[in-house]
Amino acid sequence: MSIFGKLLTALRGGANEAGQAVVDSQAMRILDQEIRDAEAALRQSKHHLTEVMAKRQLNANKAGELEAKHAELEASASAALAKGEEGLALEVAERLVELQGELEAETTIVAQFDESIASLRAAIRDSENKVRQLKQQVSVVKATDSVQKAQSAVAAQHSGQTSRMHTAMESLERIKERQQLRGAQMQAAEQLHDEQSGASLEARLKAAGIGARPSQAEDILARLRRPAGEAPAKSDETP
């Protein structure tokens, strides 16, 4: 196949895929319209059935009239024979033959109408059952579609919530890190201030027991504890 032919095939394939995508996206709408079309055809079939039944009734009425006429002429023929009117009875008999043919024709037509009516009724019942079943299945399909959409929405929401929770946890960790950094900076600043002011050195000397002088209260207690005449102990520090 030439390159041009392949391009045409690809275009046809793309058009078919695009058309199928449109059909899939509008599947519910198309299905609803197809059901409406089926219901419209069903109503039309019922209308045709009523027309056929009306025509059948007209032919049945005509057949009834012919039967009544036939019975009347038979009675007339019998009466003519009873009176010895052979010629008149023969004329009546000939008319009875004609009526018999007309009656048979009408009876045949009525029978044909009955067959058509029975066939149409069966077809209508079958169509009604199929439309009813189709509607039930469509209801199930729509319910399933709604459930699946709800599940998808929940899944998407859960995914979004998970993402938001993850983002929130990251934000919390960043806040903690900033607080720890700020605390370390404050501690370092305080330490630097102590070093610059000499407080840190004094604290270390005091902790080592160097340069610390007892308080006046301690001096009083020490003096009271000494026996009379005992000289006070000399301090280790150089005056």
Rank of each mutant, 00 (worst) to 15 (best):
M1K: 07
M1N: 04
M1Y: 05
I3N: 05
L8Y: 10
A10I: 15
A15Q: 08
Q20G: 08
Q26D: 07
M28D: 10
R29C: 12
I35V: 10
I35Q: 04
A38I: 03
A40K: 12
L42P: 02
K46T: 02
K46Q: 01
H48L: 13
K55H: 07
R56S: 04
L58F: 12
A60N: 00
A60W: 00
A60P: 01
N61I: 04
L66I: 03
L66K: 01
L66H: 01
L66Q: 00
A68M: 12
A68P: 09
K69N: 14
L73Y: 03
L73K: 06
E74W: 03
A75S: 06
L81V: 09
E85P: 00
E86G: 05
G87C: 10
L90N: 11
L90D: 12
V92I: 14
V92D: 02
A93C: 06
E98M: 04
L99W: 01
E102G: 01
E104K: 02
E104G: 14
I109H: 00
V110A: 02
A111S: 12
Q112R: 07
F113Q: 00
F113T: 03
E115C: 14
I117M: 01
I117G: 00
S119L: 08
S119P: 06
A122E: 04
I124A: 03
I124F: 00
R125N: 14
D126F: 08
E128V: 02
E128P: 01
E128I: 05
K130I: 06
V131F: 00
Q136G: 15
Q137S: 11
Q137V: 03
V138C: 08
S139F: 14
V141D: 14
D145W: 08
K149M: 10
A150I: 14
Q151K: 10
A153L: 13
V154N: 11
V154E: 13
H158Y: 14
Q161L: 15
S163M: 12
S163Y: 11
T167M: 10
T167Q: 15
T167A: 11
M169Y: 14
M169D: 12
E170W: 04
E170F: 08
S171C: 13
L172V: 09
E173I: 13
R174I: 09
R174E: 15
I175T: 12
Q179A: 15
Q180T: 06
Q180A: 11
L181S: 13
G183W: 13
G183L: 15
A184E: 02
Q185C: 08
M186Y: 11
M186T: 10
M186W: 10
D194L: 05
D194H: 01
E195L: 08
S197V: 13
A203N: 02
R204V: 14
K206I: 05
G211H: 06
Q216F: 07
R223N: 08
R225N: 07
R225S: 03
A228S: 15
A228T: 14
A228D: 12
G229A: 12
E230D: 13
A231E: 10
P232Y: 01
A233E: 08
A233P: 03
K234N: 07
E237N: 11
P239G: 04
